[in-house]
Amino acid sequence: MLLVLVVIGQAFLFINMSEIKIVEAPPGIEGNGFFATSLDKAIGLARSHSLWPLPFATSCCGIEFMATMGSHYDFGRFGSERLSFSPRQADVLMVMGTIAKKMGPVLKQVYLQMAEPRWVMAVGACASSGGIFDTYSVLQGIDEIIPVDVYVPGCPPRPEAILDGFQRIQDLVKNESGRRRHSPEYKELLASYGIQ
């Protein structure tokens, strides 16, 4: 069965070869038989198209994420077909939904378990700022406990907005210097959250 699918898939690829978009190479010097660019850019390019997200879905935004994963919006187009439910293998932590104070330590634990480089996306009003729940039990934005790279507004954001946020993460990944995670600024940022 699988074999048949693969064969069909390849036939499909063959037919539509002209429609396949291939990402452009990063700027560099091209000559006869060689292409020179910086390693950071090549790695960034590769990374940005195979980010494995960890969906930390707690509430309403998680349902919109399900729609994003569904056939209509097809999240897999961006190289993220494979959801990594294990934090150890994940690149992007997508926090979707309200994080209550009871959940806070769990979220931080998950973040700590992720390997560098790691990115964090706060999807929806609750994860970004607590949203409409300005109450005693809700964390007023996950940036109180972990650093966040991209905020996606909306309550809940539409799937298009989630996709857009994800592309912003891709931009960050593409342009990140290979040494950023070793820089004193980054260490200072983590230290401000009490993370070593």
């Binding site: 509430s59 309200t98 209550a100 009871k102 109450t135 005693y136 039990s137 809700v138």
Partner: peptide
Amino acid sequence: GYIHRAFEKIAEHRPFYQITPL
């Protein structure tokens, strides 16, 4: 209780028409 958001407490502080979003 991992996403306890205190709906009932919020509802005591909102006018009727603002409870719909809750």
